[in-house]
Every structure is written in structure tokens, then in C-alpha cells.
Simulated scan of single mutants.
Amino acid sequence: MTSTRVNGHNAAVGMTTQVRRPRRPRWATRSPGMLALYRTGVALLGGLVLTLGIVLIPYPGPGWLIVFAGLAILAAEFHWARRLLHFLRARYTAWTRWMARRHPLLRLALYTCTGLVVLATLWLLNVFALVGGWFGLHYPWLGSPIFT
């Protein structure tokens, strides 16, 4: 059986489907050039916020929140970002529920590994040597092997 769609209405099933169109500012739709400029701006801003969120994921704080904000910015204009946002939200919720059901020692081990990743990253970025220098601590092991 094939279904026929008439103005978003599925005639075979009797269901109405909504076609989501991007809500753009009026000035963005005045000319093709303005639309391209608007889409480029959304892509750049959303991409920057998304990249910042991905970098901040292992650190304490709102890493995942920033990732979701970047995807929400991109989803305002791009269908692929909307699909990815819904997929990642579902996976994130499933992960947090799964972790809540685990033994506290397993959760502690995961948090400890995350903390070690954060400390290693801060050491590689020379943060310990920088902060140690503020307090007059100039130990060679505080310095990063990258910034020697």
C-alpha cells in the first residue's frame, strides 16, 4: 500500500505529519546572498560552540551542555544537526541512567580515570608550571614536555 501525502496529511493512515522548516529572521530571507550569509554565520557559531564543548567534555563543568548548545545552534538551520542532537540526547540519557545503576566503586573508578585525564591534559598544557610560577615554585617536573 502506498501512502499519499497532501499538505502534510498522510491520507492512507489518517495521520498528520509536520514538516519542520527553519525559523529564520526576516532579513535573512530577502535575498539568496543574505540567506547564504545567515547560514554561514549559523554554521560558524554553532561549529565554534560545538568544538569548545567537545574540548571541555573531560573537564569538570558543563562540557556536554555546551556540546548540546552548539548542536542546537546548528539544528536551527541544518537537518543533520537536529537528527544528531536527538540521537546524542538519547544516548546521554541512557548513559547517565546506566551509570546510576552501577556499583559505587565502578563509578568511582570512572571518575578517577576522568580526573587523571584532566590532570594529564593540564600538565601537557603547562598549567601546573604556570600556576607554580605564580607562587615561586619552579620545579622541572611541573613543566610540560611539549613546552620546554
Rank of each mutant, 00 (worst) to 15 (best):
G46H: 01
Q18W: 02
L44I: 15
L65H: 11
F78V: 02
W123P: 03
L110T: 02
P58S: 04
L130V: 15
G47T: 06
L85V: 02
P140Q: 09
V67K: 04
N126I: 10
V127F: 04
V127E: 14
R101P: 00
V118L: 01
S3G: 15
V117I: 12
L124N: 15
P104Y: 11
R82H: 06
F128V: 02
I73E: 06
M1H: 12
S144C: 08
R102E: 08
R24D: 07
N126L: 08
W134A: 09
A11C: 09
F78M: 02
L50A: 01
G143Q: 15
H103N: 13
P62S: 14
V19D: 05
I146G: 08
L52W: 04
T4E: 01
T29P: 02
E77I: 02
V13W: 10
Y92F: 09
A43D: 00
H86K: 15
R89Q: 15
I73F: 02
E77C: 03
L108P: 01
G61L: 07
W141V: 15
V55D: 06
L106W: 10
R26K: 12
S144I: 10
L65M: 11
L71R: 09
L37R: 09
L137Y: 15
N126P: 12
P140E: 12
V67H: 07
L116I: 11
G53Y: 03
L56K: 12
A72Q: 04
G132D: 12
V131Q: 08
I146R: 10
M15S: 12
V42E: 04
G53C: 05
L137R: 15
R102Y: 03
V42M: 11
N7P: 00
V131L: 08
V42P: 11
I66H: 10
G133K: 07
R24A: 08
I146H: 03
R39Y: 00
N10H: 07
L116E: 08
Y139I: 00
R91Y: 02
R26F: 09
R97N: 01
W64K: 08
V6C: 06
G46M: 01
F87S: 06
T29A: 06
A69R: 05
R5Q: 14
R107Q: 10
S31Q: 05
F87A: 12
P25W: 01
V131C: 01
G41I: 03
S3A: 15
A75E: 02
I57P: 02
V6H: 12
Q18D: 03
G61A: 04
A43F: 06
H138Y: 07
A129H: 02
P140K: 14
V67M: 10
F135T: 11
L119M: 14
Y111V: 07
A72F: 06
G46C: 04
T148W: 10
G14T: 00
C113L: 09
A81F: 00
V118N: 06
L71Q: 11
M99N: 06
L85I: 04
L85Q: 13
L130H: 15
L142N: 01
E77G: 02
R20K: 07
R82T: 00
A120N: 14
L48V: 14
F128T: 05
P104E: 11
H138L: 01
L108T: 14
H79S: 11
L35C: 08
G46T: 07
F147C: 13
A72I: 04
T4N: 03
P22S: 12
T29H: 07
A69T: 09
N7I: 00
S3L: 12
P58F: 10
A69V: 14
I146V: 14
